[in-house]
Design a protein around this nucleic acid. Sequence first.
RNA 1: GGAGAAGUGGCAGAGUGGUCGAACGCGGCGGUCUUGAAAACCGUUGUACUGUAAGGUACCGGGGGUUCGAAUCCCUCCUUCUCCGCCA
Length: 423
Amino acid sequence: MLQLSTLRENTQQVIEKLAKKNFKNEAAIHEVIALDTARRTTQNEQEIILAQNNALAKQVGDLMKAGNKDEANALKETTLANKETSKQLGDKLADIELQIQNILYTIPNIPADAVPVGHTPEDNEIVRTAGAIPTLHAGAVPHWDLCKKYDLIDFELGVKITGAGFPVYKGKGAKLQRALINFFLDEATAQGYAEIQPPIFVNEASAYGTGNLPDKEGQMYHMQIDNLYCIPTAEVPVTNIYRDVILKESELPIKNTAYTPCFRREAGSYGKDVRGLNRLHQFDKVEIVQIAHPTNSYELHQQMVTYVESLLNKLELPYRVLKLCGGDMSFTSALTYDMEVFSAAQERWLEVSSISNFETFQANRLKCRYKDGEGKVQLVHTLNGSALALPRIVASLLENHQTENGIRIPQALVKYTGFEYIN
RNA sequence: GGAGAAGUGGCAGAGUGGUCGAACGCGGCGGUCUUGAAAACCGUUGUACUGUAAGGUACCGGGGGUUCGAAUCCCUCCUUCUCCGCCA
């Protein structure tokens, strides 16, 4: 959620910058500014009446004490009339505030200057490509065939137990999952990220806090009986730790990492995008989150990218780093890098991580702030990234490292799997 | 799930209808003293909105109500604690 002060003070600039995100609803911005003016007028009117009533109430008290009942009763009439007016103004104020909030929820974050112009994924900027794309042996197959061949992941069994998109990991497939989770957590911890194990269901307030509500209502599983949501990413519970918190400047940056299962309804996905491990309803992910000082958040953002690259290098996977264009970025992000690995048998790039700086957009909604040197309260910057999402890593790992004699486990992972080959 | 008790500032803890944004203490910050530190002493110390400012308004778990006036009374929800039941 953008700050009203930003919209009010830099209206034209904001409109121009939002064009890069294909946001064309200028009217909404003007409307919200007008509503804000109305809000202040109304609030002022109400506060004058409230102040008057506060004074009158004191006088009534004094008169009663003095035994001057008639005069007290006369004052009471004014008070009661004021109360009625104040109530009406209060209702009007609440209505205006609701309208303001509803509009603010529809305005996306301002993209950073570094964000490339563009509308589709084709317009994303390839920052760099690294790692050698392997030449597979004749007869190499996509990961879904490998899963079946080595009995690693059973998709049909998942359908029986739950439904499509809920695979069952078996044997070395299950062990590989556990190995990757431990590997990612250990690496993150070594980089100074404090490990968190959060709840995987969150309440409504948390879902609003990170902006999953109301924007992505239909994308989350919802448990109506207790009004809880299954998290689509650890970002939600971890970032909400800092909801309504005022931090000390010296505490920044806060670095957290968490492994959680993630749940996504993925309504509207179809075809080759959902084949095998490419898109699931339940998957495992290790997330990294930073709560940062605004002055160095972009530096930290780069460090996060470098860190995720180090993971991909250790897993010996070819990857590329994309800087997302305005049209492909998420609603809440100011700058996003996507990491894609090349899945050699499918011969396509798969997104395995998305690393974003939200600047104050999320912090404003979360009310996560810090107190600066002068004692003033300021919004923090929030950042997060996957490090990493498992399914597509597993897909590319199986495909890229397949040999005629089995699937080779990258050296860095062997101490976690306990085996060097899947065969 | 049943019965009872309680939720006040960073913490601890007073306050049961008006003068309470809230005592006292601890902690934090600033200062005096000291070669330095500790101790002691003095001062200061919530958030938001609004206003150029002075100031005003709101907030004592959340929401609603009674009253001229609510931290204080009533309703409701949430949370915590104690006991019982159930249970990985």
